[in-house]
Design a protein around this nucleic acid. Structure first.
Lengths: 221, 221
DNA sequence: CTGTCATTCAATCATTCCATTGAATGACGA
DNA sequence: TCGTCATTCAATGGAATGATTGAATGACAG
């Protein structure tokens, strides 16, 4: 593994980063870390994985400069190194969306009505919110909501959408968002609301992208 | 390997793309394909690798939707699927440049004078060329130059830089470019020219980025 | 100092990846 | 139709990766 020449040495380093992104579980970890910093244990719980496994994957991500670790008493809090990570994940996703037939197949079979659900863009949402025309719900778990959400959003975790909808005004359109562009929860929330007679749409992507776009973020009281 | 749920299925697909980028040789292949479409054999020759090896890596890239294959008589010509691939590689590179200490170390030890070599931006180059203030040289091999180059550039392959410099006007600044931001050839060309008394700088990146930026490209006659 | 708890390390096994070799395929030209 | 040549396939061995287990580390509380 001697360094042959600078170009190959550099490509080896770039490959380490790409390789670190090349595992489904690590991509899911990044999605969760994009909501906010987490301890190893908390992340493991979110993903339903053994702690040791998550720890090892976190170290792979750290070697690649994708996440940063910070000791906090007994805990070690991991967070994304910076927004460039989200950009990288998004661009990998873009390649897959354009060229991998399997992605299209999955989207069609699971999100059949996706085209019906014309997503709401961030700009559009801002206008709708300003004019008070829609109810915005954040369908992520409360802890993620607490770490930052779109101003004016109500936290309605996915499991409570049905109950919530009974107390909501059916004539008012609902916009739902969650962790990111392919986070399933907002798809399901919209589907549930529609089956209950609501008018509902998704935000085009999730909290991390909203934040990365420099838009205001509200923290829990 | 059954499909558990749509989210995991999607992440598996995204991981395939990232994994395909996670090998130094494949990254180098992408750099070459970014110069123009190539047959398997031609690419293998460029990289000094056995044809079968390159063929297998190309298939991994094709499965990931990164390259596209097209039969051309006896040959199969491979090309990048589209510009989104360059974006993805660039964003992976950006993560590495920001956060992988090793990248910094390599850059320092091999390109020590890098800071001295303030690169010329594309906009700056266009202004300089318009005013006729600099000589622009393309230090890639002639076949790559033929597939597209910056208008007004002279093809001076790296090996011929020294000879060429004797016939060139020493008082005129030279700008060199090659395959991309980390292509070694332009670094070396600039170093050689400076040691021969020329004033020389690099273009900030290479041909593929120039083209991707929508700037004009000139083909060989 | 000791116990507790979050995290990391070390070792194992199964799986996948990678390079190499030589044979098979597929298209062209004679 | 046959030979040639570019490419792909199949099989091999060696290396790296990933999940699991249990032990080791490191920091805090008492």
């Amino acid at each position: 593994m001697s360094i042959r020449n600078p170009k190959q040495a550099l490509y080896e380093q770039f490959a380490i980063v790409a390789k670190a992104l090349g595992h489904p579980l690590r991509l899911e970890m990044i999605e969760h870390l994009a909501q906010g910093a987490r301890s190893v244990e908390a992340l493991a719980a979110k993903l339903g994985q053994p702690v040791a496994n998550i720890s090892q994957h976190l170290q792979a991500l750290r070697r690649a400069g994708i996440v940063a670790a910070e000791r906090d008493g007994k805990f070690v809090r991991y967070a994304l190194a910076d927004e460039s990570v989200l950009t990288a994940v998004a661009s990998v996703r873009a390649v897959a969306e354009r060229h991998v037939a399997e992605v299209d197949r999955i989207v069609r079979s699971y999100f059949e009505t996706r085209d019906d659900m014309r997503p709401v863009s961030r700009n559009e949402l801002q206008a709708l919110m300003r004019d008070g025309l829609v109810t915005l719900i954040d369908v992520r778990p409360p802890d993620e909501f607490a770490l930052g959400h779109v101003p004016g959003a109500i936290n309605v975790p996915l499991g409570e959408v049905k109950a919530w909808s009974h107390s909501a005004d059916t004539s008012r359109e609902v916009v739902a968002y969650c962790r990111g562009p392919w986070c399933v929860m907002s798809f399901e929330a919209v589907a549930a609301l529609r089956s209950l007679g609501h008018s509902a749409r998704r935000l085009e992507d999730g909290m991390p992208e909203w934040k990365a776009a420099g838009l205001p973020v509200e923290m829990a009281a």
